[in-house]
Write a protein that binds this DNA or RNA. Structure first.
Lengths: 350, 350
DNA sequence: GTTAGCACTCTTTAAAGGTGAGTGCTAACC
DNA sequence: GGTTAGCACTCACCTTTAAAGAGTGCTAAC
């Protein structure tokens, strides 16, 4: 069966109404509220067709119709119109995003907050993952007799430091020498390579006197490198779901929040998502626990190299048009904010 | 009226039973389950007295008795016995806490996780707040043509860095010079003093050539200092409340989670709590939103100077004995883990 | 002082009946 | 042939009613 113009109009009306009201839509309501120019009976006939085609479902005989995942998919792909963010809101988002612009993690966290605030959904933000990240230099700095700061800087401008406690006191010159040696050895190498390849031996061999200091520092150095490769997940608006009637059931709310509680899992799911705006509706989600939800993700870039994710999760009944537009706007602005200005290159890691 | 030995015994039994079952306790149950050696009728008489004294309440005429806040207060202060953590659990906690011992924030976060896991409650952990924290040195390091790393180290070993984008290129020697100048000026000063006192002018006057560079760095420097004074709040086990029958009501759950969502508020509440183990029960909480909850907090110390908090929140019906013992054990271990070893002094700030 | 007995209260659960929204079908209409 | 009015039917939802059960408070006897 073909989807006639009229069927599409009816379907759109049902989806619009249901997204707004969360109540099954009846033929009477439809003909009264929307200017379709046909009677409830005709609408009923069309609805029966739409149901047969898999676009609508029926909670029970005497209830109105509810859009299926398939209907939302059609809506998202063909029916929905662009939502335009009001000018002031655009300005306000921009302002909030650039407020902390050189504290990358803070900005990302803020982005998640803004997103959940605007969409009233639960939002995620994943900090950038380095597709390639080479080491620029290593610096060892004195703190006190037995503590030093290990500082690692990558070519993309990511900086991390760790305070190390040493087993025995050190000499400051040795520290400087070791910084230079390590930098000399690791400079330009991929972080992941440093983790696996055993270049350590080389350095250890080179200058006998440093080997002890080296031994002290190495484990923490490797551990820090690993941490640098990790992304951070921010989640906001967890309790927003309570404003959705679909989660009035305590068990549903419990399940939903339980699912979101598995942070590593969520991070993995986000990480595996495609570039750009990606929408998965209900059963389209590979994840069983998300079968009643829709997940929308978008990507932003830092310096064009690092890719971060922004996401939103909620009931399949959501304002897809608004949500996608907001997310597009936000990732665009994030990417812009984190772009290399002129010839320089920098970012921040708190 | 005096609290006779027998009344205490009955009260204890009621509290024990209610903490376990969450159901109002009746006289029959009481006489059957606990060896009190008296009949239900006698128990009823005593319960009527206890109710008159404010230790028990009555949800309705034909229900059993429920302990009041006052009863819990008595229980906590006089009746409850010490709970001994099983040896393996002690060992496991210790292992988990020392696993990341020189990444302070990670350890604190982990502590919150462990606490919520053991108590099945919602837990908090506040990273240490510096009662006094003097600046040790400032380091400005080159990243690329227009980006530098600003690194701040305090006497307690807290380290922070920020990447700065400069408006114009810089010379490396100037950077080193400025590092030394800033260190010279700010060394030994309280972070809070640096924020308020206008020492900047001095430096600016001293060496004309550096003033531009200085201008670029100063705002971010001050902002970073402010951030260093901030504490971080970790919260775990938010969804644990769903396992408590008192939160089977969706509105109650909503309220509870809504309250916990105000992170700054929670952080402030925790911050204001007294040293050591502190228990506030129901209406004892100054906060209206916590009138149905009990809050237990404990403090740990880092290097004896910085004070951090660990906390747990849940229904007034909770296993006070177990919870307090666990928290005591954990803060003891945290304080030990973060203590200065021998003569050195260090900690970590990721 | 303690206890058995009993009337009474009040929640909880189940069943029953009524209501209303909405459908599906049929027959008439244009 | 598509469209529409009419009507019987279904089913969730609400209210009412009844019955069951837990527990109390009081009284009188031990």
């Amino acid at each position: 069966m073909e989807l006639s113009e009229r069927k599409l109009k009816i379907l759109q009306a049902i989806i619009d109404d249901f997204i707004f009201s969360a109540e099954p839509v009846g033929s009477r309501t439809l003909s009264k509220k929307y200017q379709l120019g046909i009677s409830p009976a005709t609408i009923r006939n069309e609805m029966a067709d739409l149901e047969e085609m898999g676009y609508l479902t029926h909670p029970h005989t005497s209830a109105g119709r509810v859009p299926s995942d398939r209907a939302y998919r059609l809506y998202v792909d063909h029916l929905m119109s662009r939502y335009n963010l009001p000018g002031e809101q655009q300005a306000s988002i921009r302002a909030k995003l650039t407020d902390h612009f050189n504290e990358l993690n803070k900005t990302i966290e803020k982005a998640a907050g803004i997103l959940s605030e605007i969409t009233h959904l639960t939002s995620f933000a994943l900090t950038p993952k380095s597709e390639t990240n080479k080491l620029k230099y290593i610096n060892l700095l004195p703190v006190d007799k037995r503590s030093i700061v290990l500082m690692i800087v990558t070519e993309t401008g990511k900086v991390t430091n760790t305070v190390l406690k040493l087993k025995q006191p050190y000499e400051e010159e040795k520290l400087q020498l070791l910084s230079k040696l390590m930098t000399y050895n690791y400079k330009g190498k991929e972080l992941t390579d440093i983790l696996t390849v055993d270049i350590i031996k080389n350095v250890e061999g080179e200058i006998e006197a440093l080997s002890r200091l080296m031994e002290n520092i190495m484990p923490e150095f490797l551990r820090t490198l690993e941490n640098m490769l990790n992304t951070e997940l921010y989640m906001e608006g967890l309790t927003n779901i309570f404003s959705f009637p679909e989660y009035n059931d305590i068990d549903k709310a419990k399940m939903f929040l339980g699912m979101l509680n598995k942070k590593e899992h969520i991070a993995r799911v986000l990480d595996e998502r495609a570039d750009g705006i990606m929408i998965t509706i209900g059963a389209e989600n590979p994840d069983d626990e998300m079968k009643d939800c829709s997940l929308i993700t978008a990507t932003y870039r830092v310096n064009g190299k690092l890719i971060g994710k922004l996401g939103v999760i909620g009931p399949t009944r959501m304002e897809y048009d608004k949500v996608t537009s907001v997310m597009e706007f936000m990732t665009d602005n994030l990417s812009k904010a984190f772009k290399i200005p002129e010839d320089t290159d920098s970012s921040k890691e708190g």
